[in-house]
Amino acid sequence: MENNKIKVSVVVAGQRFTILTDKSEKYVRDIASEIDARINSLVVSSNMTRERAAVLTAMDYADDSVLDRENIAAVKEQIKDYVQEIERLQDNNAKLVSDYNLLKAEYERLIEERQTAQNFEENAKKALDDSQAQIASLQEQLKKANEQIDSLKNQQTADDDIPLPEEAPEEQEKPITAEDDLFFDPEEEEVIKPEKKKKNRHEHHHVNPYQQKAKDKEQKGYTQQRQYSFFELDE
C-alpha cells in the first residue's frame, strides 16, 4: 500500500504541510485549498487567530462528516426498504406471471374447445345436409313407387271393367234319323276338335255338341248297317 502512496505539499493557514496519500495530487490540493479558504474567511470576518479559525473549520468538517454519515445511514435504511419493496414486487410479479401462465393456458384451452366445437358444428351441419338429401331422395323414390302402385291399381280396375264375351247358345242335339244310320260310319266320321283357347277365369266350360254326339255313339258300339243302296255299278 505504501508503495502506491504519493507525497503532496500543501499550504493551509500559512503553514506548509507534506501529505502522504494514495489519492491523486489534485484531489489533495483541492481539499487543502477549500480548508485554507474557510480558515481565511473566519480570520477576516471574525478577527480571530488562524489557530481558532482552523479549529472551527475542523469542527465544521467534522459536523458535515457526521451529518453525511447519518444521511448515508438513512439512505441505507431507505435503500433497504427499497430492496424489501423490490423483493415484494418481485414475488408479486412472480405470482402475476404464474397467474398469467394459468390464464394463458386456460385461454388456449378455450380456443381449442371453441375450434373443436366449430368443427363439430360443421360436421353436424354437413351430416344434417346429407341426411336431408337422402330423405329427399327416399321421398322421391316413395312418390314414384306410389305412382306406380296407383297406375297398377288403375290398370287392374280397367281390366275388371272389360265386359266378358257372351256365351254361345247351346245347340240342341239333333235327333238321329234312319237316314243318318244308313251313312254313319264311326271310323270315317270326322271328329271336330274345338280350338284350344286360353283359359279365362271368367270363361265357362262349353261342350261341343258334335264331339259329344260322336263320343256317345262310340260308347254305345253303334255301327252302320247298310240295308239299302241307292247306287249301282255298271259292269
Rank of each mutant, 00 (worst) to 15 (best):
M1V: 10
L142W: 04
D185A: 05
E232W: 04
T21F: 02
F231M: 13
E173H: 06
P175L: 13
E85L: 13
Q172Y: 07
Q219A: 14
T18G: 04
E170H: 00
R109H: 06
Y107P: 01
Q172F: 08
A158Y: 04
N119L: 15
F231H: 11
H202T: 07
R29C: 00
P209M: 11
S229Y: 10
A37S: 10
H204K: 13
L56V: 07
A124D: 02
K5C: 10
E203W: 09
G221N: 05
D68W: 14
E77Q: 14
T18D: 05
V8T: 01
S33F: 09
K215R: 11
D129G: 07
F184V: 02
A133H: 07
V97Y: 09
F231G: 09
H202C: 10
D130W: 04
E87Y: 05
L42E: 01
A53F: 01
P175M: 05
D81I: 06
S65K: 14
A73H: 07
T57G: 02
N154D: 08
S41P: 02
N200D: 15
L67I: 11
F183I: 08
R201G: 06
T18V: 09
K197F: 09
Q132V: 09
N4V: 12
N92R: 07
E179C: 05
S98D: 11
Q90C: 03
R88K: 15
T57W: 00
K80R: 15
S137Y: 14
Q118M: 08
K76E: 14
Q84D: 10
I35K: 02
D130G: 00
L182Y: 03
E112N: 13
E189Q: 07
Q156V: 13
R16I: 00
N101G: 07
K153D: 05
F120N: 12
I72L: 13
D161P: 00
Q84K: 14
I86T: 12
D234C: 08
R226I: 14
E25Q: 14
I19G: 00
D185V: 01
V10E: 00
E232R: 06
F120A: 15
D161C: 04
E171R: 09
E167T: 12
E173T: 06
R88P: 01
K193N: 09
Q141C: 01
Y61M: 04
I162S: 01
A158S: 09
P175Q: 06
E147L: 02
V83F: 08
L102T: 08
S45N: 11
E51K: 06
Q84G: 14
I72C: 06
K144P: 01
V191Y: 07
A168G: 09
D130N: 09
Y222D: 12
S229P: 03
A32N: 01
Q155E: 14
S229G: 11
F183N: 12
E179Q: 11
E173N: 08
Q156N: 15
N146W: 07
Q155C: 05
Q224E: 04
T116H: 07
R109C: 05
K143T: 12
A136F: 03
E195C: 07
Q115V: 05
S41I: 02
L142T: 11
